[in-house]
């Protein structure tokens, strides 16, 4: 199996690559992790990972800058149902639009909008930065061998308000509920950074590598 991590000029590709490589070694299966920056390579991938650190508009721009990338992603993920994982902004890009620095359209794979985290009290700091507990549907294979309320690493100022709650697989709490994992068929996204969440994060990535949606 070939897992492609898309490098579109945004963020911590190296960290993501390292963590996926570690997870695949632990699984001891024939899994190849590759960093991809063009459509020809992407075509060969069986699973697709879209990392994202940065501003929404800048990330969307980065995707659009690679000729044919968004079209191919739509084909692979929507038509061919290949397993997809977006991380942080890579997850937020699944929304219809974001209100970060103006208004930017997203991929519209899961209906909803991206808005800023609401400060509910004076002492509450934004960005939401650090380890926060994640509540999830324990039956799902993506959370195999992960304990309820496990801490994962978050760092973001905006959140994905998913229109239909059934697409929210896990949530965390910071000035209200925040979608921590979204899931719609073969499309999955995490607001937290599994690549930065030590053992629990590596386990989550292993689960994604074994996931057969």
């Amino acid at each position: 199996m070939r897992v492609g991590i898309i490098d579109y000029g945004s963020g911590n590709i190296r960290s993501v690559f390292k963590s996926f490589e570690k997870a695949s070694l632990l699984l001891d299966k024939n899994i190849q992790i590759v960093i991809i920056d063009n459509v020809e390579e992407l075509k060969k991938a069986d699973k697709v990972v879209l990392p994202g650190v940065g501003a929404f508009a800048d990330c969307m721009q980065g995707l659009n800058n690679i000729n044919g990338l968004v079209e191919l992603l739509n084909k692979m993920v929507i038509e061919d149902s290949k397993a997809f994982m977006g991380i942080c902004v890579g997850m937020q890009l699944l929304a219809n639009f974001s209100k970060e620095y103006g208004y930017t359209e997203g991929l519209s794979w899961i209906d909803g909008e991206v808005t800023s985290i609401v400060k509910v009290e004076e002492e509450m700091k934004v960005p939401h930065m650090g380890w926060n507990s994640v509540e999830f549907d324990q039956k799902h294979s993506l959370f195999r061998r992960i304990k309820q309320d496990e801490d994962f690493y978050f760092v973001h100022s905006y959140k994905f308000n998913v229109q239909n709650n059934k697409f929210v697989l896990a949530k965390t709490h910071y000035g209200g509920d925040i979608a921590a994992v979204v899931l719609k068929d073969n499309i999955m996204g995490t607001q937290f950074h599994p690549e930065k969440s030590q053992d629990a994060g590596i386990q989550f990535i292993k689960n994604f590598l074994e996931w057969a949606p």
């Binding site: 963020g11 911590n12 590709i13 190296r14 960290s15 390292k18 963590s19 570690k22 650190v53 690493y153 760092v155 950074h193 690549e195 930065k196 969440s197 030590q198 994060g201 590596i202």
Partner: peptide, 25 residues
Amino acid sequence: FMPLTVGGGVRSLEDIRNLLLAGAD
């Protein structure tokens, strides 16, 4: 496999980008 903050002699956007590529978060 935890978040890493890196500082020292950062002067440009290029420097920031290079650090992120080197593995800083």
